[in-house]
Write a protein that binds this DNA or RNA. Structure first.
Length: 354
DNA sequence: ATCATTTGACCTCG
DNA sequence: CGAGGTCAAATGAT
């Protein structure tokens, strides 16, 4: 119960943060601004109702009744969700379509991905509106940039290396997790096997060497090096070499995935998100996007490794990591908000830059 | 038992 | 020759 409540609270906080984040974009779109505020109010009202109901019926009862049914009904009672849904109601035609709690128990992987996507969609809000730029201020990001997985037009600025085969080389800067396993750079859609680590002259941190796990199976030549920056310990410089020819992002899912599944040992299984939250968030995010004329590739997904990502993949990935951080850590530790907000703050300055 | 990671040794290139 | 990159045995995790 606490987990669910905390998830809801975190969700509301993120919505608020995103609203703040996008205030410049919404300045001349008051109706969307109003809707955004309503959404935040909606989430926190759900929290309030839930907390109050604990007092009335007791925690035990709430556990059973709880998130699948209880919160949803509280939500429906307190706010007419259908009214707020607006055009988004096309996504959920009836609130009764919301799956019950039991259906969430064995939540399939794609639903878990969907949950991360929900957070992501909101966080992408500003990014998608066309204000580009590498989220970490990297050298080649932004609209018109490359995805980290597309080296077809690799930068040649890094040609002073020692090795001959430096043609397919792309250097990206990515945010390091500030808690949890912060030794590992954020996932980029492919599975990598670490095959070496070396102290590098003039660097405070060792460099790690990775090959694509498909190297043997499919002769995939892709490699990457990860180097934590001396002056920016929470930034990795990731050097990709050679294109993937395996085109298999992490697992063998046939359908394109928005988020590749987590690599082993880095991400614990995701606990279920409150059903009501799932549902409301789903139509809400889409609703807002539609209002803005922005329809993220959420339904189709973003296929890792696809070219033509216009530099959004990196941002996408990092936001996904934030979402991950929220759902994986928010359940437990109090500083979960730190990473989310500090991450957002870190990126904030980048928005609006040209 | 299997798979992933670590780490020291070895190789390659400038 | 030395730094960067890779290999592969040892070790750890599941």
């Amino acid at each position: 119960m606490e987990n669910c409540l905390e998830s809801m609270i975190l969700h509301g906080c993120i919505l608020a943060k995103i609203l703040e984040h996008n205030l410049p974009n919404l300045a001349n779109q008051p109706d969307i601004l109003v809707k955004s505020c309503e959404e935040i109010v909606f989430v926190f009202r759900n929290v309030r109702e839930t907390v109050l109901s604990v007092g009335q019926m007791g925690v035990q009862e709430l556990h059973g009744f709880g998130i699948g049914g209880g919160i949803r009904e509280h939500a429906m009672a307190s706010v007419d969700a259908r009214a707020i849904a607006g055009v988004g109601s096309a996504y959920i035609r009836h609130v009764d379509d919301v799956p019950e709690r039991d259906e969430m128990k064995g939540m399939p992987l794609h639903d878990q991905r969907r949950r991360r996507q929900l957070c992501l969609e909101f966080m992408m809000f500003g990014e998608m509106s066309g204000v580009g730029g590498d989220i970490m201020g990297g050298s080649s990001g932004g609209i018109g940039g490359q995805t980290p997985l597309d080296f077809s037009s690799a930068s040649s600025s890094q040609t002073q290396g020692r090795r001959k085969n430096e043609v397919d080389k792309v250097v990206k800067k990515v945010a390091a997790p500030q808690m949890g396993n912060n030794e590992t750079p954020p996932e980029d859609g492919f599975k990598w096997k670490k095959y070496g680590q070396k102290e590098i002259l003039g660097h405070a941190y060792p460099r790690s060497y990775y090959i694509c796990t498909q190297q043997k199976l499919r002769n995939c030549p892709a490699k990457k090096q990860v180097q934590r920056l001396d002056n920016e310990p929470f930034v990795f410089e990731v050097t990709y070499r050679n294109n993937h020819i395996c085109r298999v992002p992490s697992d063998s899912d046939a359908a394109p995935v928005l988020f590749p599944p987590s690599t082993t040992a880095q991400s614990p299984p995701l606990p279920p998100l409150p059903t009501s939250l799932m549902a409301t968030t789903q139509f809400r995010s889409t609703n807002i996007f539609r209002h803005l004329g922005i329809v993220p590739a959420s339904s189709g997904g973003v296929e890792a490794g696809s070219s033509g990502g216009h530099g959004q993949f990196n941002e996408f990935q990092q936001v996904a990591d934030m979402a991950d951080a929220m759902f994986n850590s928010g359940i437990s530790r109090s500083n979960s908000m730190d990473i989310i907000f500090s991450s957002l703050d870190d990126h904030k300055w980048d928005y609006g830059r040209s």
